Computed example of a mutant assay.
Amino acid sequence: MDSPPISSSPPKLFPSITERLTTLQYSKRTEESYIQWIKRFITFHGKRHPRDMGGEEIEAYLNHLAEEKKVSASTQNQAKSALRFLYEQVLERELPVMENLVKVKAHKALPITLTKHEVQAILSNLNGSIWLIASLLYGSGLRVMECLRLRVTDIDFAKLEIFVRDTEGYKNRITLLPASLVEPLKAHLLEVQSLHEEDLAKGFGETRMPASLARKYPEASKDWAWQYAFPSSRLSVTQQTGDIYRHHADEKTVQRAIKKVVKQAGIKKLVTPNTFRHSFATHLLQGGQDIRTVQELLGHADISTTMIYTQVVNIGGRGVASPLDVI
């Protein structure tokens, strides 16, 4: 007998998933990704309800991704994280150890970096908040989402420091704030503060808080200090509660702007916002900065992750000059 369609499986699964994701303050991007992976998992197993499946079915699906779909290690890990969330956070079931899981081996490619001249060529053709975001990515070594998730309180102008909050499993860290960005950033925040005051006057002005802080400071969501430094131009509505808040800016807007300028500059490299972070690390090492310091600024848990930039720093094959060039 055919299994009932997903939408009629009691209790309603996907509203429960969305509600749990919202409660735990997962980003919109992660929410959409997890839901898609869970749907694919259910479809793969003939639309059986996840309650009737477990570790064996998860293992079979992840192995299918590795052996049949030939996905990357990061893609397989993302699918695994989504299914672990489903079972542990929504269905409240502990998953067994998957002893026969076929793990995709990660292939570490050298990061694409820009020369200082190329960085300048790109930044000089950007303006407004996009210029400021790109400048912080390069000047502070931030990931694009770390930059967009910055709160006003995370920026210390007196100490020239930026506090980067725990994201994607990394520890909180402190990185530098370029002195040249102090005045432009202050001017930008004045505009953001005006927008926040307009929101408050209209009965809005709330932002999404990290789950732990939301419980500890339930009224802080309207405080200026906790607003995003780079807010969205539009208000958002939470589907489950109907709450209206202002989220951070969309990373796609940053990606599109940088892609356009890179093309205009005639740079023949696959440049993304995070290319600025790679360039930050490479240029620090080229300038003689200690690799342990660079590791701390980037937030790498393992020094081996930072070591990959030493290969980029080398000029030519392994940094060796060709004998033809020294004749």
Rank of each mutant, 00 (worst) to 15 (best):
S232I: 06
A109L: 08
T18I: 11
V144L: 03
Y217N: 07
Q311P: 00
R215Y: 11
F85K: 05
R84H: 08
P231H: 07
S135P: 05
L65Y: 05
A214L: 12
I58Q: 06
A106C: 00
L176M: 14
H196I: 01
I267N: 04
S3Y: 15
F85P: 05
K70W: 12
Q25S: 15
Q255V: 00
L200C: 09
K269S: 14
V326S: 03
V104S: 06
G203S: 07
L123P: 06
L110V: 05
R48W: 03
L177A: 09
N77T: 00
Q89L: 04
F41I: 08
L324D: 14
E198K: 13
V320W: 11
V294R: 01
E168H: 00
G288I: 07
S9D: 11
K259C: 00
E19M: 10
S72D: 15
I174H: 03
E198P: 03
Q289T: 13
M145C: 07
R48M: 10
Y170C: 02
T253Y: 12
G205C: 10
V119I: 15
I267R: 05
I17V: 15
P11I: 09
L91F: 12
T75R: 11
A321S: 15
T282K: 13
S180K: 09
T305P: 00
Q25N: 13
T22D: 12
P4T: 08
H64K: 08
L195H: 08
G169A: 00
S236T: 14
E31Q: 14
V261I: 15
A249E: 11
L177G: 06
S8W: 05
E191N: 13
A109G: 13
L101F: 08
K171D: 11
T43D: 10
Q25F: 03
L126H: 10
V294G: 04
Y309M: 00
I303E: 01
H283E: 07
S322R: 12
K103M: 11
I6P: 00
H283D: 06
T115S: 15
M1Q: 06
N125M: 09
P96I: 09
S8N: 06
W37K: 02
E183W: 07
H45P: 01
D223L: 11
M53A: 09
A106I: 00
I130Q: 07
T30F: 01
V102C: 02
V97Y: 14
G203N: 05
A281L: 11
N127G: 13
H64R: 09
I112P: 00
S74V: 11
L136F: 02
T310Q: 10
S124N: 15
W37F: 15
V97D: 15
L200D: 04
V144M: 01
